[in-house]
Amino acid sequence: MDNFTPISAALGGAMIGLAAVWLMASAGRIAGISGILGGTVTANKGDKLWRWTFLAGLIIAPLIVGLFDSSLLDVQFPTTGPLLIVAAVLVGIGTQLGNGCTSGHGVCGNARLSMRSVLATLTFMTTGVITVFGLRLLGGL
């Protein structure tokens, strides 16, 4: 556990929570990234601009944080190539079929004590852990 970083993790988590609360307070929306992203194309006309500006903020933010600590942008991808593509397809289909991801279910839905979100979170945590365990067994990690 050399890389245990509970303080920066909790601080970042609190920022994500503030983002979710502010989105609800100002726009009345759940901060679910997969839903906001999917709606940029399929939502009604007047329901699109706020999604694009949210996503713009999401994409610009790391560069601002990087000005203070560039090491945070030095990320490593243990998985590459075809397996990375398979993973992206699964994340795409899974979040649409299950109506949410780590943010929509994991943060917003659980904070509302939604049983759908609690079960979804338990499910993706479980399959995520099993998948990483499988990768380790097969020597992929």
Partner: peptide, 23 residues
């Protein structure tokens, strides 16, 4: 709901990325 969440978890575990961080 459960199948979708399950598939999402497999993808998340395989790559270490979910939609927010990916963007």
């Amino acid at each position: 709901l459960l199948i979708g969440a399950g598939l999402f978890g497999v993808g998340w575990g395989l790559a270490g990325l979910c939609p927010g961080p990916a963007l």
